[in-house]
Design a binder for these strands. Structure first.
Length: 487
RNA sequence: GGCCCGUUGGUCAAGUGGUUAAGACACCGGCCUUUCACGCCGGUAACAGGGGUUCGAAUCCCCUACGGGUCACCA
């Protein structure tokens, strides 16, 4: 079998979108699975909206996700250049070919004229499409229009009464009639090719074997197939994957929340969670397992397990999956990723020294099981950093009014007196001693301590909290809380 | 509107003519635990509707409904 070559071809008109990332992922998985190549091609022919900033953002996001490419604008490759605006001379040759074969012609219609034609067709109840009024214009007519200062576009002459059949890897056979397609523009009046044309030239020139892209391109495919035929070329395999929808089942957009990869990155989602989640959106593994590393995904991925139907983006499931990775990843790494959020909240210094770093790691370890995203950490670590706090609710305050509480607190304070450092094990032991001393156990002794120290009836393990606060602060909080409850 | 694609629990989804219609998230309940969470165990919940074909349809065909895509000098 010929080596697989896939491409991811974003237009740099904004940050990398969730859907674009998933297309890139599927291409990546297929290529890596079969030892093929991934080509990154920048489709920047929309001069108005394309920007180098977007291009950079897209590449950053792809790298962050771990979706590498083998050829691209940054690293070059044997089929370059990899930005369409740098390939204009290549397209020119193909346009010439089309002219020679009689498949291309100049069109001088203005926007107003086109709009008028459209209205007329609509009025007749016909489908609005370009009917080829400029086809077969004589030299003289053309010269006349040029003299008027009109800049022509190049249109492709669509053969009539053709049935175009596509064998889509995810949808099976799909057929279209060419009569539903008007003569479309392949070169704009400024000499820049349009998408449908450039994509054909580039996919061919770059030796692309499989085109995996979003479903919105399905109805463009017959145009491209016609172009391949006119040029005497063989089309690649196509696979059109379904769209990603928002909660209300319409196409994912800003109002559904974050749509770009970098937003999720900023909110503290881990790249492996994003990749894992995106893979599950439209593809399903064979077994019952759903948590997979990229390598496992590569091993298991296959196009025939890609779903046809669109999928709603389920943030809850992403949060769960992200939580799985937060809990299971190396603490050093998670703490490092959580640090910016702690710094922003004023809980960590700009450059933590070894001692502070140690404390931060312990804090992160104590609360990581609560997190769906790293940014949520600030809500859970307040108890370690805010020395002033109120009781969460009346229920919490009431705990401290129970009759055994004074004895518990006295025992705790006396055990703590003179202790200058204690670790988790020390704290466990100390709590046990307190329990023994007051001859009570369970929530009778531990809940009051928890409330006295944090103001809340829930939270991390007491033996994690106490070492982090230190004996002195524990005593201080106990006294402050007891004073408060006596008021 | 024409053309194209799609429709299994709230969500992601398995399923390719005969299954008690998987699994995951969410939800509910229980266990674990000094609390919450984590973890473990269990539960509620689905084949859009109507016609066919067939001994038998979630699976095949047709129609309807609904959702989406596309019909740009955007990709």
């Amino acid at each position: 079998m010929k080596d697989i070559r896939v491409r991811f071809a974003p237009s740099p008109t904004g940050p990398l979108h969730i859907g674009g990332a998933r297309s890139a992922l599927f291409n990546f998985l297929l290529a890596r699975k079969y030892g093929g190549s991934v080509i990154l091609r920048i489709e920047d022919t929309d001069l108005e909206r394309s920007s180098r900033e977007s291009e950079k953002d897209i590449m950053d996001s792809l790298r962050w996700l771990g979706l590498s490419w083998d050829e691209g604008p940054d690293i070059g490759g044997p089929y370059g250049p990899y930005r369409q605006m740098e390939r204009l001379d290549i397209y020119k040759k193909y346009v010439e070919k089309l002219f020679e074969k009689g498949y291309a012609y100049h069109c001088y219609c203005t926007e107003e004229e086109l709009e008028q034609q459209r209205q007329e067709l609509l009025a007749k109840g016909e489908m609005p499409r370009y009917t080829g009024v400029c086809y077969g214009l004589s030299e003289e007519e053309r010269r006349k229009r040029e003299e008027e200062g009109r800049k022509p576009v190049v249109r492709f002459r669509v053969p009539q009464d053709r049935i175009i059949e596509i064998n889509d890897l995810v949808r099976g056979k799909v057929s279209f009639e060419s009569s539903g397609i008007g003569d479309f523009i392949i070169v704009k009046s400024d000499g820049v090719p349009t998408y449908n044309f450039a994509v054909v030239v580039d996919d061919h020139e770059m030796g692309i074997t499989h085109v995996i892209r979003a479903e919105e391109h399905l109805s463009n495919t017959p145009r491209q197939v016609l172009l391949y035929e006119a040029l005497g070329l063989t089309p690649p395999e196509f696979a059109h994957i379904s769209l990603i929808l928002g909660k209300d089942r319409s196409k994912m957009s800003k109002r559904h929340g974050a749509t770009s990869i970098n937003q999720y990155r900023r909110e503290g989602y881990l790249p492996e969670a994003m990749v894992n989640f995106l893979a599950l959106l439209g593809w399903s593994p064979e077994g019952e397992e759903e948590v997979f590393s990229v390598d496992q995904l590569i091993e298991r991925f296959s196009m025939d397990r890609v779903a046809k139907s669109p999928a709603v983006f389920d943030l809850e499931k992403l949060r769960w999956l992200n939580g799985v990775y937060i809990r299971n990843s190396d603490l050093e790494r998670i703490a490092g990723l959580a640090l910016p959020y702690l710094q922003e909240a004023g809980y960590a210094s700009e450059n933590p020294g070894p001692e502070e770093w140690e404390r931060i790691k312990n804090v992160v370890e104590a609360v990581r099981e609560y997190l769906g995203a790293l940014s949520e950490i600030t809500e859970h670590v307040r108890i370690f950093f805010e020395t002033q706090f109120d009781f969460e609710d009346e229920k919490a305050a009431a705990v401290l009014r129970e009759e055994q509480v004074p004895a518990v607190m006295e025992a705790l304070k006396s055990k703590l007196a003179g202790v200058d450092s204690l670790d988790k094990e020390g704290a466990k032991k100390l709590l046990k001693e307190v329990s023994k001393e007051v001859k009570l156990k369970g929530r009778k002794v531990f809940m009051p301590i928890r409330v006295a120290l944090t103001g809340m009836t829930h939270g991390p393990e007491l033996h994690d909290i106490i070492p982090l606060l230190g004996a002195e602060e524990v005593i201080r909080r106990v006294e402050a809380s007891m004073a408060k409850v006596r008021e």
